[in-house]
Amino acid sequence: MSSFRRWTATHSWIWSFLGAGALMIVMLPFLRGQGIEQVGQVAIQFATFYVMVGLGQMLVIALGSGNIDLSVPGTITLAGFVGLSVSSGATGTLGACGAAVAIGIGAGIGNAVLIQVLQIPPMIATLSSGFVLQSLAIAFSRGASAVPSPLLQAISVHRFAGVPDLAIILILASLTVGLVLRQTRFGRTVLASGQSIRAARLTGLSVNSTIAIVYILSGIFAALTGLFLAASVGGASLDMGQEYLLFSIAVVVLGGTAISGGEASPTGVWGAALLLVLSVTLLNILGVGAGVRFLATGIIIVGVLGVTKPRED
C-alpha cells in the first residue's frame, strides 16, 4: 500500500484521470447506444482548448514565487478577433497563425517587462495587461467579428480517426513540453526557480531570461487558443475568454502542478481538462439546475484537490 502511496504522490496526475474515468462510469446508465464513445469524443474536443491554454499557464505557475498569468482571457480575445480578420485577408491561414503568435509574444513581453523591470507583482501585472488586451480587442473589433477562412475553420474542426486534429497536435505538444521540462536546461531552470529561486540564481542559472521566455510561451499558447477557438465556432466574441481565467488555473492545479511552483505535470493538465469537461457534461445530463451545478463543480474540484497531493516533503 505504501508503494502505491509513493507512486501516486510523485505521479499526482493520476487522480484527475481516475476522476474523469469515474465520471464516465457514472454517466453510462444515462447514455444510449453509442453514447459513451460520443461523450469521449466531445470531451476530448472541448478539453483540447483547456489544455492549450493550460500548458502555458502550467509553465508560469511552475516558476513559483507567485508567478501566474491572468492576462490569458485578454490574449485569447484579442488573438481571436485579429487572427480571424487576418485569415480572410491576403495572407490567409498562415498569416492568421503568425498574427496570433505575434500577439502572444507581445503580451508575454509586456508581462515580463511589468514583472521584471517594473517589479510589479505578477498577479497585478498580468491582471492589468489583461485589461489592456481586452480593451484593444474591443477597439479593434468594435464588437463585430470577421468570419474565419474556410481552411482555418476546417483545421479547427477536422478529425482524424474520430480524434480532433488539434487534440493530436496538442498531445505531441504536451509530450514536447514534458521532455523540455525534464531534459533541457531551460526546463530544469523553470523547475529549479519554482523550488527555490534564490538557490537557482546562486547556482548560476539564467533565471531572469527564463522567466521572460515562460511568459512569452504562455502568451503564445493563449493566443493560439483564441485563434482556434474562434475559428472552430465560426466567429470571435468579446466574452469568449472569460471562462478561461479560472479554468486555465484549475486544469493546472487539478492536474497535480503545485501552485507554489517547482512541479509541473503536462499529463495532469489533460486529466484535469477531461475531468472538468466531463463533470459539466454529467451535470447537464442529470438535468441539474444552474445553482446546484456551480455547487457540484466546486465540490468536485475541492474533492480532487484534497486527494491530489504533490510530492510530500
Binding site: 447514455l31 477557438l229 471562462e243 469537461v277 459539466v280
Partner: peptide
C-alpha cells in the same frame, strides 16, 4: 461557443 459545448455535451444522452 458556450452553447456549442453545452449542447454537444448533453446530446449523447
Amino acid at each position: 461557443s458556450v452553447a456549442n459545448k453545452e449542447v454537444a455535451g448533453i446530446l449523447p444522452s
